[in-house]
Simulated assay, not measured.
Amino acid sequence: MIYTVTLNPAIDYLINLDNLEIGSINRVEDEKVYAGGKGINVSNMLKQLGYENTALGFISGFTGEFIVNTLVEKGINNKFIKLKNGFTRINVKVKGKEETEINGKGPVITNDELNELYKILDNLNSDDILVLAGSIPSTLDDKLYENIMDRIKNKGVKVVVDATKNLLLNVLKYKPFLIKPNNHELEEIFNVKLNSNEEIIKYSKKLKEMGALNVLVSMGKDGALLLTENDEVYVSNVAKGIVKNSVGAGDSMVAGFIAGYLDTNSYLEGLKLGAASGGATAFSYDIATKEFIDEIKEQIIVCKM
Rank of each mutant, 00 (worst) to 15 (best):
Y51W: 14
V28A: 12
A288K: 08
D12V: 00
K244S: 05
V92F: 10
T63E: 11
N77I: 04
I25N: 14
V157K: 10
E98A: 05
I120M: 02
K143T: 15
L83R: 01
V108C: 09
S60A: 14
L46A: 06
Y13W: 14
N195V: 12
V28K: 12
S277W: 03
I109G: 00
L140M: 15
T54F: 00
E185C: 07
M253I: 10
A288F: 10
G50S: 13
S252Y: 13
I129M: 12
K180S: 06
I90L: 10
E187Y: 00
N44Y: 14
L144W: 00
A276W: 03
K180E: 00
I67T: 03
P107Y: 02
N191L: 11
E291H: 09
L268P: 03
L56W: 01
L213H: 10
V72G: 08
N170D: 13
K208L: 11
E199Y: 06
D150C: 04
N170R: 01
Y203L: 09
T70M: 08
K165Q: 12
G274P: 05
L140T: 01
G37W: 00
I300L: 11
N265R: 10
G64L: 06
K143G: 04
N230F: 13
M219D: 04
L172C: 05
V233C: 06
L227E: 01
N265T: 06
G250T: 06
D231H: 04
I11P: 09
A276V: 02
I152H: 04
S24N: 15
Y261I: 00
G250R: 07
I25V: 15
E146N: 10
E21N: 15
V238T: 14
K180R: 09
A288N: 09
S135Q: 07
I22F: 15
L268C: 04
N91A: 14
V72R: 15
D142T: 13
E116N: 13
V217S: 05
L172M: 00
E199D: 11
I300D: 03
K74Q: 15
L273R: 09
A275N: 05
G106N: 10
T63Y: 12
L7D: 01
N147H: 09
V161I: 11
N183M: 12
K32T: 13
